[in-house]
Design a protein around this nucleic acid. Structure first.
Lengths: 184, 184
DNA sequence: GTCTTTTACCTCGGTGTCGATATATCTTGT
DNA sequence: ACAAGATATATCGACACCGAGGTAAAAGAC
């Protein structure tokens, strides 16, 4: 999850750790701070895996920075993650938003459309959140708790909203993929 | 996170592990399966902490079950978590939905309203997801990636939707809290 | 009769993230 | 001169969760 975000941001332009931290915080979960104890070891691992290189530069304001740059290896890894996201990245909203934030790094519109289709497929299946004592599904209007009612209502409208957008986006991507195929 | 879900479900009625697993899976992240290796150790820990008791019962279909029942201690713990959720449970959508799913176990409408207010406060602050190379915020219409545009658009409409619901719900709760105060 | 599937429970090792803690640099206020 | 605060990087122990693996009991298929 963090690795995807780091490589995704570095693919745009080189950054140092502190900057990355703020950008990831703003994006992930929307403004959940990411701990130092998570970020720096993760950067180290990515460096050891050859996904990024670091270059010490004087700090613009304070202490010296390590400017991080993505490598070809790192770009390949990023694309692999985006091209074929693990199930959690499709079903977990926060993780899915991360995929969406970096999906433009996957240059082929056909591949992008496939990922969107997977999310669409997931959103399509009806969600049943609650069951009664005997395991029977409980429809929203039969729920005692107003909070559970609201939860299901919000969840539903959010899904419809995103499906609509996905639909438009996929149509657009497929059109562009068609042109590309026609001209090749 | 899992602990909250377990105690929350058990507060409704006693369940066995396997049943819990399916209910949590349906609710958390909407239908993300929860691993056995997570569930059973967590149950064990909750039992050791005195939050629940177990009672072996013959399985209705197959192997014998451990029926789990919440204790007073467990109920107290659940209420503490709900009354004062950690920051992540307010800002992380999946975790927040969990809080919402069990908020009815907090019996005081005033306390419920306080929790909703914290979420509202969080949603109220304008979210800036992306920044350019120099650290300047990038508005949606200046984004190159259609996916990032969509992300911001979806994010915004989802937020407005939920704020509207929160508003209605809080008004209702405060009205009820007022009645209670008046009759006491 | 045995074989597979479903129900049901459990352990162990590995990974990802957090929170506390530490250190160094530069700017600004006093 | 010195303290405070923002910038910047790093380590360590703890905890939650996962995935692979294993056990067992009953139902139904062949």
């Amino acid at each position: 999850m963090l690795k995807l975000a780091i490589l995704g941001f570095l693919r745009d332009f080189p950054l140092h750790g502190y900057d990355l931290k703020n950008r990831v915080a703003a994006l992930a979960g929307h403004v959940r701070p990411i701990a130092d104890g998570t970020l720096y070891p993760t950067i180290k691992k990515l460096e050891e895996a050859g996904c990024l290189t670091r270059r010490t530069a004087p700090g613009s304001v304070a202490a010296p920075r390590h400017m991080l740059e993505i490598t070809q290896e790192g770009t390949d890894q990023l694309r692999r993650w985006l091209r074929n996201p693990e199930p959690g990245f499709i079903t977990d909203d926060n993780k899915w938003y991360l995929v969406l934030a970096f999906l433009h790094h996957l240059e082929n519109p056909r591949e992008q459309a496939i990922v969107l289709a997977r999310r669409r497929e997931f959103l399509d299946q009806p969600t049943q959140l609650f069951y009664d004592e005997d395991g029977r599904p409980v429809p929203p209007d039969r729920l005692d708790s107003p909070f559970r009612k609201g939860l299901m209502q919000i969840h539903r409208s959010v899904g419809l909203n995103e499906i609509e957008w996905l639909e438009r986006q996929m149509a657009d991507l497929n059109r562009r993929a068609g042109y590309t195929a026609g001209t090749s």
